[in-house]
Nucleic acid binder design. Structure first.
Lengths: 209, 209
DNA sequence: AGTTTTGTACTGACCAGTCAGTGCAAATCG
DNA sequence: CGATTTGCACTGACTGGTCAGTACAAAACT
């Protein structure tokens, strides 16, 4: 009954084409923006005929939306994994936050173009994929908010903190620092960057410990 | 010798038109991005003919570049002012950082569209105004870096902090938190948001004080 | 044998930038 | 004084090019 080549869903060939298109689109759109990137360019960089793009995706915007969903899905999974692993090992909530900072850095290190593109589109309004982006953002930030809330409940964090705003600020801290790293001092190591952010996170900038 | 009608520089009329064009362009580009915004739209929103745009600016990109310079100039000045005022009053460097956080929030509160657009374009590569943006960014971040460096020199901050990266992270923290505030909970007061960020800045989230 | 990809050619909407011309107020002229 | 010129600011129809999306027959995969 079962086919020998394990196929879960679509054919492998088609999946490979879609993957190539994602990769081509992500770098081009990160560099130039959505509107300035042409479908011809995407097809060419993917090494594929233009018709193939439209055989695989209903339109340019749909391609982009699926790309967004795909990418943020990876990030969210990675953040969750980091938080859960820390919990399993009996770490504190600060440890969990720190692990998530690292997971964020690893993600950005691996997919800098996606991150760039995500930031560039996130606060736009009046765009077709706005709602998709909103949903997907909530999922990611919610992971951070969850850890903060648990920390408050456990008495590890002050109950005066504003969970939502603090989560956004933490995400912003990592995002901007990492993009800066990649853009302006790419020779530095991930550990190095992580150490700097850890210090800031734990208030060891101003305070003597 | 001197003319009776004291006119310093350009005519008032022209200046007013340029201002209208700036205002129209900033909101449209923040919403849709540079490439997706047409010159016709900008002209229409400014209540001006298309030709007038080209009478006042050499091209669409030039209009945008001057807009960027103009906006970041305002921000930089405001940050400097905050730092200097704190110094004059004999505040600590943490106080100065805090004052700059507030200045940043005030700026974003007043010019949310500009901030949006700035973030969206900052990490793009291969764009015409890339170099302009780079210069202008350095100026703004340099103000924060300056305060951090002085703090280290004065022994107020650990000399192990990475000035450049920490500055970027702080800017990111304020930027993203503020955009989140404006986008998702605009009813909150500036003081409220400032308080949350202050707490984070001073490590009063996790640390017992 | 059905699915996927290719290559080429095409369409029609859209858009940055141009240009000949208008309106108007101050300056110059006769 | 009235008539004419000058220069600035602005206008909006027009042009030349670009690009998303379509069409389709032949080829390549699985």
């Amino acid at each position: 009954m079962e086919s020998s080549s394990a196929r879960s869903g679509g054919s492998t060939r088609r999946e490979a084409t879609r993957q190539k298109l994602y990769e081509a689109a992500v770098t081009l759109i990160a560099e130039q923006g959505f509107s300035a990137t042409t479908v011809d360019e995407i097809a060419e960089r993917a090494g594929v005929a233009k018709g193939t793009v439209y055989y695989n995706f209903a339109s340019k915007s749909v391609l982009f939306e699926e790309l967004l969903r795909h990418g943020v899905g990876l990030l969210t999974a990675s953040l969750k994994e980091a938080a859960e692993q820390t919990a399993r090992r009996g770490g504190t909530k600060v440890d969990a936050l720190d692990a998530m900072v690292r997971a964020g850095l690893v993600f950005i290190d691996r997919y800098p173009a996606f991150t760039q593109l995500y930031v560039a589109e996130l606060w736009r309004t009046n765009r077709a994929w706005q709602s998709t982006l909103m949903v997907v953002r909530r999922e990611a930030v919610a992971v951070v908010e969850g850890v903060l809330r648990e920390g408050v409940a456990a008495g590890e964090f002050s109950d005066e903190i504003d969970v939502q705003l603090t989560a956004a600020a933490l995400v912003g801290m990592v995002l901007v620092a990492a993009l800066d790293w990649k853009s302006f001092q790419p020779e530095r190591s991930l550990d190095d960057v992580h150490a700097a952010l850890s210090r800031l996170l734990q208030g060891r900038v101003s305070g003597r410990v």
